[in-house]
Amino acid sequence: MTPQKRSLYLIDGAGYYYRAYFAIRQYLSNSKGTPTNAVYGFALMLKKIMKDKTPDYALIVFDSKEKTFRHEMYELYKAHRPKMPDDLAVQLPFIDRLIEGYNLSAIKEPGYEADDLIGTIAVKAAKEGYDVVIATSDKDMMQLIAPGVRIFDPMKDKLIGPKEVREKFGAGPDKVADVLGLMGDSSDNIPGVPGVGEKTARALVAEYGGMEKVLKAAEGMSKKKLKENLIEYAEQARLSKQLATIKLDSPVKFDPEKWKVGGPDNEKLKALYSELEFARML
């Protein structure tokens, strides 16, 4: 009988507290007026993963506040994003206490995004024989799906593998960055090629097999404007693909023994939930 693989959950920390904040739009607060919507959503997500999925190892990964190597490549990368809302910022210490209450490890690395740390660890862990699950709702991370690496979206309670990537992008995980490079990504201010949306980018990659092949074939395309834009903005497309590509050699230490899941500190969690008045969590 083949022994069951050790499971490692890599949790997109900032992705989830932002999504929780925007998903729970009704104003939640305790009797002292402290906002609690992001903490509450984050708590529900952690509970779903830790109780329902029971991972052997788990790590929460955050973005660093410093600019990254992508800003050096493209000054306008994420330039349009507003600063963190004040009523979210005040909830972050409670999220830190929540993570501490679950006795989970959390990491970040100056100059790198959570995606890059997750990608680097996922590749290494899969090679070491772990069953890696990335907990995220970020479509960009679909490029990381590979043998031994899947995505779990707690918001949709859905596991994502190569089949779901093909349904979303019209191509396998290895071509996700090609599609994103052509279509751009407004959430990250990645420009892409003007006039090329998701539908066109999917069709081009499906027909020609990748960005370089698309750009090479542009000269012979019948659609005049598409042809002109692919030729004129070829370098912008290549830059956009680079910006959308997750780095797999980030300087992050692979130390799974530190990420081993023990039991939560129920007293700490109870104290936190009482302070925030999360009656359903008590």
Rank of each mutant, 00 (worst) to 15 (best):
R150V: 08
I151A: 04
P154Q: 08
M155H: 10
K156D: 09
K156W: 02
K156T: 07
K158R: 15
I160M: 12
I160C: 05
P162Y: 05
E164N: 08
E164C: 11
E164P: 08
E164I: 07
V165M: 11
R166K: 15
R166G: 00
E167N: 08
E167L: 11
F169T: 12
G170D: 11
G170E: 11
A171N: 04
A171V: 15
G172W: 10
D174S: 14
D174K: 14
K175P: 01
V176K: 11
V176Q: 12
V176H: 13
V176M: 13
A177I: 05
D178I: 06
D178V: 05
V179S: 07
V179D: 06
V179A: 10
G181Y: 05
G181N: 10
L182Q: 03
L182A: 01
L182I: 02
M183H: 10
G184N: 02
G184T: 05
G184M: 06
G184E: 08
G184P: 00
G184Q: 06
D185G: 04
D185T: 09
S187K: 07
S187I: 14
S187M: 10
D188G: 00
N189F: 12
G192M: 03
G192S: 07
G192R: 01
V193Y: 07
G195L: 03
G195F: 02
V196G: 02
T200F: 02
A203K: 14
V205N: 03
V205G: 08
A206D: 12
A206P: 04
Y208R: 11
Y208W: 14
Y208M: 04
Y208A: 06
G209A: 04
G209T: 02
G210A: 07
G210W: 00
G210D: 12
E212N: 14
E212H: 09
V214N: 02
A217E: 15
A217C: 09
A218L: 05
A218K: 00
E219P: 01
E219L: 05
G220V: 09
M221P: 00
S222A: 14
S222L: 12
K223A: 11
K225L: 11
K225V: 14
K225D: 12
K225E: 15
K225N: 15
L226R: 05
L226Y: 12
L226P: 09
K227W: 07
K227Q: 15
N229V: 08
N229T: 10
L230W: 03
I231S: 07
E232V: 05
Y233H: 15
A234K: 15
A234L: 06
A234V: 12
Q236C: 01
Q236W: 01
R238T: 02
S240I: 03
S240P: 00
K241A: 09
K241S: 12
K241C: 10
K241W: 10
Q242V: 09
Q242L: 10
L243S: 03
L243V: 06
A244Q: 02
T245A: 04
I246H: 03
I246F: 01
K247I: 08
K247A: 04
L248Y: 08
L248V: 12
L248Q: 13
D249C: 12
D249A: 14
S250T: 15
P251Q: 08
P251G: 00
P251E: 10
V252I: 14
K253S: 13
F254G: 02
F254Q: 00
D255A: 14
D255E: 15
